[in-house]
Design a protein around this nucleic acid. Structure first.
Length: 209
DNA sequence: GAGTAGATCCTCT
DNA sequence: GAGGATCTACTCA
């Protein structure tokens, strides 16, 4: 399906995260590579699913209505940092903060196709063999990559966690759009088409299509 | 295969 | 003191 091309991997630049349109960035993140390098263990995966959270005007966002708390203050900082938080007491959800200071945009990474360090991911998740549950869904992928809430505030331009472009390009018709998942509480904002995924990829969460 | 309950704990009210 | 940007296992059919 995808071919790895590690030689041409290039970290996404600060300016990539600084742009205004969080929905556009969410779409562009599909096909990019998320890499973690923690305690000398390198694991990575290609992003196949993402969701945009459009700051203060978005009821589904933690920053909805300008809410500002200890937990989400990182969203009010500059783009290019990680926002990780705990959900349902069990799951660590990994977000990419975008835009500039005081504009709390973020993108939730929901699905990855494993690339490097698959055996390490299996160890972390207590799985025996690779299947599509390893990095499908936001809770699973952060566990597989070793990401937890203590990584909130980590720069995505550093060595520990970063996003890279290895030259893979997705054609426009390979990308599908849908409403976001698990945000029914957000009223009509739950219907916004802010979720993007690679059509037919087995690491996309939700019902297979 | 579909539907539901339980896990589990940090964060905000 | 309540509830959440979820996942899994279990039931029932």
């Amino acid at each position: 399906m995808f071919t790895t091309n590690e030689i041409d991997m290039e970290k996404l630049k600060f300016s990539f995260y600084q742009r205004q349109d969080v929905v556009e960035i969410a779409k562009e993140l599909l096909g990019k590579v998320l890499v973690t390098n923690l305690k000398g263990i390198v694991t990575s995966g290609r992003i196949v699913e993402s969701e945009a959270y459009a700051g203060v005007i978005d009821k589904a966002s933690h920053a909805s209505g300008g809410r500002r708390t200890n937990r989400n203050q990182i969203m009010y900082g500059n783009g290019g940092f990680a926002y990780v938080y705990l959900c349902y007491g069990i799951h660590h959800l990994f977000n990419v903060v975008t835009n500039s200071k005081e504009i709390p945009h973020a993108i939730l990474i929901r699905g990855l196709e494993p690339l490097e360090g698959i055996e390490k991911m299996l160890l972390r998740t207590n799985k025996k063999k690779l299947d599509n549950t390893l990095t499908r869904g936001p809770g699973n992928l952060s566990k597989a990559l070793g990401i937890s809430t203590k990584h909130t505030g980590t720069s995505l331009l550093g060595e520990k966690i970063f996003l890279a472009d290895d030259g893979v390009r997705l054609s426009r018709n390979a990308i599908a759009t849908s409403p976001r998942i698990g945000v029914d509480y957000a009223g009509k904002d739950a219907l916004l088409p802010y979720r993007f995924y690679v059509k037919g990829n087995q690491f996309v969460s939700g019902k297979p299509r």
